[in-house]
Design a protein around this nucleic acid. Structure first.
Length: 266
DNA sequence: GAAAAGATTAAA
DNA sequence: TTAATCTTTTCC
């Protein structure tokens, strides 16, 4: 059917109600939350009290990464999502004392019937249309925080979903946030798990990833081989976009979400 | 103003 | 296979 005509990117007639933009800043010191209940997530808006936190000096682990893998600049992201997605593989996500290596991603693009930007600019999706290099975090199924990296230039509605990561440091914090004492792929294979491990809420949406503090993306080793496949969980989209091979993963990595049997060499 | 659906996960 | 859980978007 003809469902493809309204997907055009909207003009300025759309009103943009400003999303809640309380960008939380965290210092370079490592924060350890003593409160032990990873089950009930803290309600957005009530950031955990500063006084309840135990501040620990930055460890050598972070210094090593900052030295060898510097934070990526804004320029890195100003390309189309299909190019940015595979380039994000192997890069590092850093927040608090947690460092994750990106192992699986999906590209979402303009004129893409699976992209959140398909309805134009809204309060939720405004960051997607902003300049590349910012986070787009949204609540999925009322439960899961999904982290995207906004791609391309301002005005273009494109982003890359982070589907899976491998743990690099901060394993205890990851396990505590996940409520799971495992080192196996079940810990971080899935977009909801990544968001939970990083301690994200929708307040982190639109957070710049190219400036020090809070959530950052650091440079990392380029993977030797990459596999591609159709994106996951978008059955509502048009066949053309359901079948598009816009899912990318590091070949051979165990840190990849299901289904794995749809991934092939490009 | 009401209702359906969702870029998922964990447990039965 | 299904419940959990709630915001966003659409429909009347």
């Amino acid at each position: 059917m003809n469902k493809k005509k309204k997907i055009q990117q909207t003009d300025k007639s759309v009103k943009i109600t400003n999303p809640t933009k309380t960008i939380r800043k965290s210092s370079t010191t490592i924060k350890v939350k003593p409160q032990p209940k990873p089950k009930s997530r803290a309600k957005p808006g009530s950031s955990f009290q500063e006084k309840d936190e135990i501040l620990v000096p930055t460890t050598s682990v972070s210094s090593v990464f900052l030295e060898r893998f510097p934070i990526l600049s804004s320029d890195f992201y100003q390309i189309e999502a299909l190019d940015l997605a595979p380039r994000l593989l192997g890069k590092y996500l850093k927040k608090d004392d947690v460092v994750l290596q990106i192992t699986e991603v999906e590209a979402y693009r303009p004129n893409d019937s699976a992209c959140h930007g398909r309805f134009g600019i809204t309060a939720r999706t405004a960051p997607v249309f902003g300049p590349g290099g910012h986070a787009y975090v949204y609540l999925c199924y009322g439960l899961h925080m999904m982290l995207n990296v906004v791609a391309d230039k301002e005005g273009v509605g494109a982003a890359v979903l982070i589907r899976s990561c491998a743990p690099v440091s901060g394993l205890e914090t990851i396990q505590q946030r996940r409520g799971l004492k495992s080192e196996k792929p079940v810990l971080l294979t899935g977009p909801g798990k990544v968001g939970q491990a990083l301690g994200l809420s929708t307040e982190w949406s639109n957070h710049p990833l190219f400036t020090p503090g809070g959530l950052e993306v650091l440079d990392g080793p380029e993977p030797e081989k990459i596999v591609v496949g159709p994106r996951v969980g978008i059955e509502y989209a048009s066949p053309e976009h359901v079948n598009a091979l816009w899912r990318f993963a590091i070949a051979g990595s165990p840190w990849i979400s299901a289904p794995k049997n749809t991934l092939r060499p490009p």
